[in-house]
């Protein structure tokens, strides 16, 4: 199996056109899957040497407010070290700080976490709650070969994405929530480090004067085939303060709607209970 290091976009799409070629980012998931024989590749195309796929830049204007373009091969450690990620996206920073372990965060990338599309992918619930979009690049001539897609449409199932053959995830675009938005992330795992999430919750809430919830975006990890949203529970919270009563009602709605799985890490019943209970933490916001 050859390992190729294209240095430009043009070289990237040329090398990817080889039959059986696959994109290699941090390798923390892909190399494990390849070695186990669950997946195969004729050649690996590393994104390491393509500068435009790495790094964080500010975007904004166009009436959409400010945002960040997070290059696909930016590592979790690099994201965590960025002042705007820490200050303006604390829910993402919290998820990143609980992802894997220091060496895994030094190697693993945001693009990799996104394209692996695991139901337990730690960055995915916060990105989903934040309304992130993915930037997909391809060799197609029209439209400069780039399209954007909401993350919710990009991830189509466990380990499945809308990535077309020959297409590469170039960046994740995240809007920066303005003042008045509160962010919260919590992950429950079997241990603190190197844990696959048993259940996680990312909550993004906008409150008005007096603490009334105007908008709520709740996204759970590890309770379904992809990140799970619960509009019914969000509706329970809107127009109310984050009291234990309101949150308890929302938690009951979550338990009634969520359809988690049994697996080696936890039972469906446990996940259902915890998925609801994690909402009760919002009382402290």
């Amino acid at each position: 199996m050859n390992v190729l290091f294209p240095r430009t976009r043009a070289e990237l799409f040329q090398t990817l056109a080889e039959p059986g070629a696959r994109v290699l980012a941090g390798g923390t998931d892909l190399l494990v899957r390849l070695r186990s024989g669950r997946e195969t590749a004729a050649a690996l195309v590393s994104l390491d040497k393509i500068p435009e796929l790495r790094g964080i830049s500010e975007t904004g204007g166009e009436g959409l407010g400010r945002g960040l373009r997070l290059g696909a091969t930016t590592t979790h450690t690099e994201l965590l070290a960025h002042p705007l990620v820490r200050a303006r996206l604390p829910m993402l920073a919290q998820a990143l700080s609980e992802l894997g372990s220091p060496p895994i965060r030094n190697m693993g990338t945001l693009g990799g976490n996104t394209c692996t599309a695991s139901p337990a992918g730690d960055t995915l619930p916060p990105l989903m709650a934040l309304g992130a979009e993915v930037e997909l690049a391809s060799a197609r001539p029209h439209g400069a070969g780039t399209r954007r897609l909401p993350l919710a449409e990009f991830i189509t199932g466990p380990g499945r994405t809308a990535l077309a053959p020959g297409e590469v995830l170039a960046a994740v675009h995240v809007p920066l929530p303005g003042a008045g938005w509160m962010q919260h992330f919590e992950k429950v795992g079997r241990r603190n480090a190197l844990a696959v999430a048993v259940v996680s919750l990312a909550a993004l809430l906008r409150t008005e004067r007096g603490g009334t919830v105007a908008e709520a975006r709740l996204a759970w990890g590890s309770v379904g085939p992809t990140v799970w949203r619960c509009p019914e529970a969000e509706a329970v919270l809107v127009g109310r303060r984050l009291s234990l009563t309101a949150l308890g009602e929302a938690a009951a709605v979550v338990r009634a709607h969520v359809k988690p799985m049994d697996d080696v890490r936890a039972s469906a019943d446990y996940r259902r209970t915890v998925a609801g209970n994690l909402l009760l933490r919002l009382v402290a916001l």
Binding site: V3, F5, G27, T28, L31, V32, L44, S46, D48, P103, I104, N106, M107
Partner: peptide, 10 residues
């Protein structure tokens, strides 16, 4: 980094 998750070419 982890040597088990890197390839020679890297």
């Amino acid at each position: 980094r982890l040597a088990c998750l890197m390839l020679a070419a890297q």
